[in-house]
Simulated assay, not measured.
Amino acid sequence: MKRRLLLVSNSTLHVGRYLQHCKQQIQDFFWKVRKRILFVPYVLHDRDTYTKTARDKFKTLGYEVDSVHETPDPVDAVRKAEGILIGGGNTFRLLKALYYNKLVTEIRKRVLEDGIPYMGSSAGTNVSTISINTTNDMPVVYTPTFAAIGLVPFNINPHNLDPDPSSKHMGETREQRIIQYHEEPDTPCVLGLREGSMLLVEGNNATLLGCTKARLFQRGTQTTGYEPGSDLSFLRTDAQ
């Protein structure tokens, strides 16, 4: 399998600028891209402003950014892309637009068969998985399905938070919500990426990067924690 993925939990870390906390990982990841990266800004309503943010950032890294929303033929843009970037925003809005523009199958083909690099952050990470069932976002729009691009055979919960023992909030924790998800049959494992963590996937190898730990939720078993640098290649089963 040719896939190369950089799946980031969050676009901005506390007191940092946009993608500043993963600048080095981005440079290492996209180094084979000749010059241009295709940006997918469907996560936000204001696509022009979001594109400018991404364009300005990647220019400092030596890349030009083309936005899929600025082209008359999104499918053709994906077919010609050297690399793909999908950032954070609303996951439901993103997935609906990907299906509407017929990009789900095309992105999957370019990444899994052609081997172009795919970077996702937050919502962009959510849609790289089996489904968006474990997103934290509100369903502001109706998606035709929860099935996502399927670049990896598990789900991810970006912005994963640990329970705060000092909090008086009585609502459900992220862990409780994921356990409820796993009460349904045939649900995949869920990798909880804390703020500042990211997963690098190269072929069938997967490594946890960043400055914070991740948690793996599996149906019927105890949650397991992993340190940055951990080999998570046991999650590598070929995407279905």
Rank of each mutant, 00 (worst) to 15 (best):
1 M>I: 12
5 L>K: 13
5 L>N: 05
7 L>F: 05
7 L>S: 04
11 S>N: 10
12 T>H: 09
13 L>D: 00
15 V>E: 11
16 G>F: 07
19 L>A: 01
19 L>V: 03
20 Q>I: 05
21 H>Q: 11
24 Q>L: 10
25 Q>T: 04
27 Q>S: 10
28 D>M: 05
32 K>C: 02
32 K>P: 00
34 R>E: 07
36 R>Q: 07
38 L>Y: 08
40 V>K: 11
46 D>N: 15
47 R>P: 00
48 D>V: 15
49 T>E: 06
50 Y>R: 11
50 Y>L: 05
52 K>L: 06
52 K>I: 04
53 T>F: 02
53 T>M: 04
54 A>P: 00
54 A>T: 05
54 A>K: 01
56 D>F: 02
56 D>A: 01
59 K>E: 03
64 E>S: 06
66 D>L: 04
67 S>W: 00
67 S>T: 03
71 T>W: 02
73 D>C: 03
75 V>K: 08
75 V>I: 07
75 V>F: 02
76 D>A: 12
79 R>Q: 13
80 K>G: 02
80 K>R: 14
81 A>C: 05
82 E>N: 09
83 G>L: 01
85 L>S: 00
85 L>K: 01
88 G>S: 02
93 R>V: 04
97 A>P: 00
97 A>K: 11
99 Y>F: 09
99 Y>T: 06
100 Y>C: 03
101 N>C: 06
101 N>R: 13
102 K>A: 10
102 K>N: 13
103 L>Q: 05
103 L>A: 02
105 T>A: 07
107 I>T: 01
108 R>P: 03
108 R>T: 07
109 K>F: 09
110 R>Q: 15
112 L>M: 12
113 E>W: 13
114 D>H: 15
116 I>W: 11
118 Y>W: 05
120 G>Y: 06
120 G>I: 01
121 S>H: 06
125 T>E: 08
126 N>W: 11
127 V>W: 10
127 V>P: 00
127 V>Y: 10
131 S>F: 11
133 N>T: 10
133 N>Q: 12
134 T>D: 00
136 N>C: 04
137 D>G: 02
138 M>T: 05
139 P>I: 04
140 V>G: 00
140 V>D: 02
141 V>Y: 04
143 T>M: 04
150 G>Q: 04
151 L>T: 06
153 P>R: 13
154 F>M: 07
155 N>T: 09
157 N>A: 11
158 P>E: 08
159 H>C: 06
163 P>W: 11
164 D>N: 14
166 S>I: 14
168 K>Q: 12
168 K>G: 09
169 H>L: 11
170 M>Y: 09
170 M>W: 10
170 M>Q: 10
170 M>I: 10
170 M>N: 08
172 E>K: 15
181 Y>D: 06
182 H>N: 07
185 P>A: 02
185 P>S: 03
188 P>A: 08
189 C>T: 12
190 V>H: 08
193 L>I: 13
193 L>R: 12
194 R>H: 15
196 G>I: 03
197 S>V: 09
201 V>K: 15
206 A>Q: 12
207 T>W: 10
207 T>Y: 15
208 L>A: 09
209 L>H: 13
210 G>D: 04
211 C>E: 14
214 A>Q: 06
215 R>S: 13
217 F>M: 12
222 Q>T: 14
226 Y>L: 13
228 P>E: 05
231 D>T: 12
232 L>D: 04
233 S>R: 15
234 F>Y: 13
234 F>W: 14
235 L>S: 03
238 D>Y: 08
240 Q>I: 14
